[in-house]
């Protein structure tokens, strides 16, 4: 999976599972303030990615995640770590 693919998948999740409006999704959009995600959503999102990539994603790595870009970075880190 490339970084772009992770990004695209994230957009898909946000729109389909979290009812985020497409136009709001920007790399520096704040998850809580701009996209109305809460901490349980973050857990759900991590689970969705885990199912997709078949690897465990540590919730701890998401403690400091604040923006859309942060998520892409964290997920891509896990994907790239072969």
């Amino acid at each position: 999976m490339t970084r772009e693919e992770v990004e695209q998948k994230l957009h898909e999740f946000l729109v389909d599972l979290f009812e985020v409006e497409k136009e709001l999704i920007k790399p520096d959009a704040l998850l809580a303030d701009d996209l109305d995600l809460d901490s349980i959503d973050a857990v759900d999102l991590v689970v969705s990615f885990q199912d997709l990539i078949g690897k465990r994603v540590k919730a701890d790595d998401f403690k400091n995640v604040r923006t859309v870009n942060d998520i892409v970075d964290q997920i891509y880190n896990v994907v790239a770590k072969a």
Partner: peptide, 8 residues
Amino acid sequence: ESHSLSTR
């Protein structure tokens, strides 16, 4: 079927 949609 999705938890996040159900909560919404």
